[in-house]
Design a protein around this nucleic acid. Structure first.
Lengths: 334, 334
DNA sequence: GCCAACAATGAAAGCGCTTAAAAAAATCTG
DNA sequence: CAGATTTTTTTAAGCGCTTTCATTGTTGGC
């Protein structure tokens, strides 16, 4: 059996309340007893039971994280940031991988509820109304990261997708490209899909290149789909020389396709990605991309949730972080 | 306030033990009351408090996972497998990213202990004696995945690193390569470093190519290091035409270096990786590699831990899973 | 040297739940 | 239909901890 506070008390020959006080308000107990208690704790490798504590404090000091795809380097970065923030703030982290499956999200929210997490960071793409209902029904505070909701008013940490996409496409235009295509996120159940397309359209329109707006094909988060989407795009628009991919993973898939077709990147086609994953600088060619502050997004989300938990509200609801263009080798002047 | 069992009891006009029985032994309570209770539970969105339950059952139905690097696709795959197994077996999962830092491991073990996880899967590379002591001191059952320990007798799920490495190098030899180099894991604090080097040596020796055994440089988990290590290797041994990398990430770093030096892969140098990450089929060139059953490793580890938790022991201590050679585009006949 | 003020300690209640034991209700038996 | 038996429900104890409140021991002022 694991030792309990009683065992410590017995060994130190004090009452359990004294042991408790040694842990929670050490200076209210006299030195001689305190050291006896500490010694007993160490000897027994005593660790207070979080269940008993949670029962009293009604706090678990545990945060939940809902992630759509753990095998996506993007979210891996978010996790890292969030976990570091959690360490700083004294929380533990429970991570659940939803695979973008709504039922799984719902079921994980139940788990979080049962385990009494103090709050949740929701990174699972779209905030489904069912999830929102459940979360508010359970009264679990939560924040969104790399997501947002038009319907509901929820604290959010994200970048400006529209502007970032616009910057990416502008860069392609500055390079002299006039035939520009895009590999985007499917718009159904997607938060960043529409704004990134809007940014694409805006950059094009500003430059009088509106005729490109239909040169878009959609893919579904994984490079294999982007590979296929690129195939379709170039079948219809072989004239494209500038390609905007809304994710580095898509850019990799696209370049992989172009390579298989012996189309040179950046020789014949310039490709710009989005995210700046850890691996993007090592792809061949190294990716030009829009960098998101991935780690910071996760970090900030945890801080924001903490703010919400401690003060009951949040200073700014929607927090936008900065993106940045990173020019590497997958793009070139036309 | 969150509703408690009392609130449900009051609403359904029964005692709290009846409510409890509805949840734990439904057929011991008469239909009429049962449905009243169920209705009340739903109306209140009641969810039993895991703290109170844990206090009684002394089980959290939560497993801990210690991961060295969440931004490594390899471990992301392990997590996926483990999480799916956890869903099947009724556990929740608490994932902690150690960044290979011993102090962080130790501190996470304390957290796991306090949160009363039922067991731990330890994937953090080396099982440090301190960690072993702490884990056994706390009496937390644990299993190793993609790791093993010579000193201690711990249930383990892994592949045969020596044999897998040997197979990789044999393949290079079959291709006609006679000048073979390796980018390996540093041997200090590494579990798979030494056996993979041993496999390299064995394949070489079998083929009478022992003079290659010194053509090795070491890197530290990330492709940047592999890039640098490849630089050093080729500075000393420009004659190398076959390169064995002990991780796909290393292979990517190596190829990236070779590309920057205008050395063609596979034209001039054949590269074989290890792991078969999700991305390896999309790298340029697509990687020839030794596939590990990454997902299954994680899945199996969770199952094994469950076995240990329920039966108190484990049928086979060290479980070896099969690796497989996957030939793609980064290798070619000499 | 006596009583007020204070510090240190312990006893006990209670957090939300399960469950053994007791009580009550329902059913059976002769 | 009374008493025995079975089924259903309630009461109450207890899981490991914190914290309030009462108690004891110490100081110190006069």
């Amino acid at each position: 059996m694991k030792p309990t506070i009683r065992d410590v008390a017995k060994m130190a020959e004090v009452s359990i309340s004294t042991v408790s006080r040694v842990m929670n308000a050490p200076n209210t107990v006299v030195e001689s007893k305190r050291s006896r208690v500490i010694e007993a704790i160490e000897k027994l490798k005593y660790q207070p039971n979080a269940f008993a504590r949670g029962l009293i404090y009604k706090k678990s000091y545990m945060l939940g994280l809902l992630i759509p795809d753990i095998e996506n380097l993007y979210f891996a970065g978010v996790i890292r940031g969030m976990q570091d923030a959690c360490i700083k703030l004294g929380y533990s982290l429970m991570i659940c991988n939803t695979d973008r499956d709504k039922d799984r999200m719902l079921s994980y929210i139940d788990t979080f509820h049962e385990k009494q997490v103090d709050g949740i960071v929701y990174a699972s793409d779209v905030l489904y109304p069912e999830c929102y209902e459940k979360l508010t029904g359970c009264r679990i505070p939560f924040v969104l990261v790399s997501s947002h909701s038009e319907e509901f008013d929820v604290p959010t940490v994200e970048i400006d997708d529209e502007k970032a996409a616009c910057d990416a496409v502008r860069f392609l235009i500055e390079l002299g490209h006039t035939e520009i295509g895009m590999i985007g996120f499917d718009h159904v159940n997607s938060v960043s899909g529409p704004p990134r397309y809007d940014g694409f359209v805006r950059a094009l329109t500003e430059a009088g290149l509106e005729y490109n707006v239909e040169k878009v094909r959609y893919a579904n988060h994984r490079f294999e789909h982007a590979y296929q989407a690129t195939h379709e795009l170039f079948a219809d628009y072989p004239e494209v020389t500038g390609l905007f991919c809304v994710a580095d993973e898509f850019a990799m898939g696209a370049i992989s396709y172009l390579k298989d077709r012996n189309i040179l990147v950046p020789g014949q086609v310039s490709v710009i990605g989005f995210d700046n994953l850890r691996m993007s600088g090592m792809f061949i060619p190294k990716l030009t991309t829009i960098a998101q502050p991935i780690y910071q997004l996760g970090y900030r989300a945890a801080e924001k949730l903490h703010e919400l938990l401690t003060t009951g509200k949040v200073e700014v609801t929607t927090e936008k972080m900065e993106h940045k263009l990173i020019v590497r080798e997958s793009s070139r002047e036309r």
